[in-house]
Write a protein that binds this DNA or RNA. Structure first.
Lengths: 194, 194, 194, 194
DNA sequence: TATGAATGAGTCTTCATTCAT
DNA sequence: GATGAATGAAGACTCATTCAT
């Protein structure tokens, strides 16, 4: 029954994304999520330890998958420049394609206790490491400045993209996020290039 | 008794910064803040509409004051480059000097309902406008590239600094934030310069 | 405000005795007790740590008081025989006078987790010690058999009286419990006398 | 398939004794008992009406069997005195041999709603009647005092033995219960003899 | 103004019980 | 008969807010 089980697990996660996006984490009662998922309240607890576990799972499953995609596409790039462009393009495109998920990851997931933040940190770390590796590759190939502070730079790059997504969301998605890729990557490359 | 009133108002805000920083917004009971401030629970409601209003006031008062400082120092700068450097230096220095406030603004203030986010947005807007104006000055003076997307750039700059502060906080302030000013500003200027 | 506080504390305890007696511990919701006491649900928690604490307090306060009376009256007796008679008479009389309390102590208080049983044991211990001391006095004065096993005897005496009360309660108090004092004490004295 | 059926029924009862003894009635989930018995949760309901029915059945089956033994051994006694001694010896010995059952009957079975108590009463009644008959025999044979209140006496005797067992259990079985038979019976006989 | 005792709405979670397979 | 996933009712407890003093 593993298939049915997984199906219900994903169904609850889908419902949670929707409800969290609309009402925020603290405004989302388990009963609301259960109703949206078409299951009984108690059923939630057959798949998740508690309410917070839904949020953590959401992050791990959905954002983890996204970050996996970033890594895959970066691996296929032929240069550091190209990798950075690909990552940013994917980052913006994927969140633009999944605005509910974007809302949850940018807004709701920040609303959480320390315990959760640690989990989130764990999920994000591969992404930060990915950016760092791209920077190191660029330095090695001579594309990027050798004196670059890679730790600081990866923070600045991640923070910049993160804020671009948040601003787009808070503008109520009135413009295209994907259209910002060029400007963003141009900004980064000028900052990085030798 | 306006002076006494203001004094108590600030006292409660100080207590709130401390309690929020230690326990987070949702873990901070009004009674805890009242005890820390040395007043009765009910007294809080003579100065604030409700719990959320404390957070909003905190942001408006404390962060607003900070942003005022940024504006004043930018006004005294002799070039756009210099203004950007001054803003970043002050941004990092002030939050490093007030780690509790930093914690509350970077972590706790993000934990809030949409209504609050709008308020926060209002407080932050002058800061974003300030950055935008610096960019426009730089373009006008020929220091920055004329084709620069100022709206996007100000998002990237703010997001980058914001993440730098958050990373420093989550590292448990193991390194100096002020020491990151040079690297950060260098990153920005390379991205911006013509 | 200590007087008002004590008054409300006792009021809640009174309500709890009534509700526990009618519905049993597990059938008594906090809301039922609160309504009976004429206070809000939350008020209960200003006076008691949790639901079990009400039961523990009930035992400590009410039964403790009763046992105090037993001790006082035993102290005034002129012989061990007399003390035993006085204790039994008081034991039966008090519980007959307070049938709700009797119900709670004989029936409901037995329905509890180990943690509570320990508390109950603590409250009852002075009573068992009292009986033991009466037995020792009786042996010392030559009234009771010197070879008596006092520990066992005090168990048998307490258990016998306890069961007499329970049986009377389960009979729905169809007969007088006080009328059983003579028979009970006669039974004990024959068993104990030299 | 009556044999297989009975076997599973007894298996569940065995599991219930174990689980109740360890976790108490309210701490024992059906699922825990099912796992201990090696059956599915739902299977329990093919053999028992509901959770309380397990407790009632436990009492009826296991304690009923015990009481049957008491009756058989009393029937074989040649005098009332002897019967009383035999009953007490068996009572103590059997519960000492089956400490889990002892725990459940002395502690857990008391934790129950009125409905259950009535059922328990029904199971115990034959035992009380047995004691009563022994008393009547003793009076008839002149061994016991003719003016004895048999109803009260049987309560006192049962309560005394019951408490002796409970005390032994709560002492964590640090001493031999069987060793208390002599002292107990001696106590009773002195109280009863003419 | 200040107090803090009292309020009571709100919700996560448990677990006995059912029923489709 | 046997299973065990699903159900959903039920309730203890918290805490922001009020208001009589």
């Amino acid at each position: 029954m593993a298939v049915g089980r997984l199906h219900k697990f994903e169904g609850i996660l889908d419902a949670a994304v929707k409800v969290f996006a609309e009402h925020g984490y603290h405004g989302s009662q388990i009963s609301k999520i259960a109703k949206e998922a078409g299951v009984a309240d108690g059923t939630i607890y057959l798949y998740f330890k508690n309410k917070e576990d839904i949020l953590v799972s959401l992050f791990r499953e959905r954002l983890g998958r996204l970050i996996g995609k970033f890594e895959a596409s970066a691996r296929d790039s032929k240069s550091a420049e190209d990798a950075l462009r690909t990552i940013c393009a994917l980052h913006y495109a994927e969140l633009e394609r999944h605005p509910l998920l974007a809302h949850v990851t940018q807004i709701e997931l920040r609303q959480s206790a320390l315990a959760l933040r640690k989990e989130i940190g764990k999920t994000l770390k591969p992404y930060l490491r990915l950016i760092e590796n791209v920077l190191l590759d660029g330095i090695a190939s001579g594309a990027f400045r050798p004196e670059l502070n890679v730790v600081l730079s990866r923070q600045l790059i991640f923070g910049a993209m993160d804020e671009a997504v948040s601003s787009w969301l808070l503008s109520e998605r009135k413009y295209s996020l994907a259209a910002q890729v060029e400007g963003t990557v141009d900004f980064f490359l000028r900052a990085l290039k030798s």
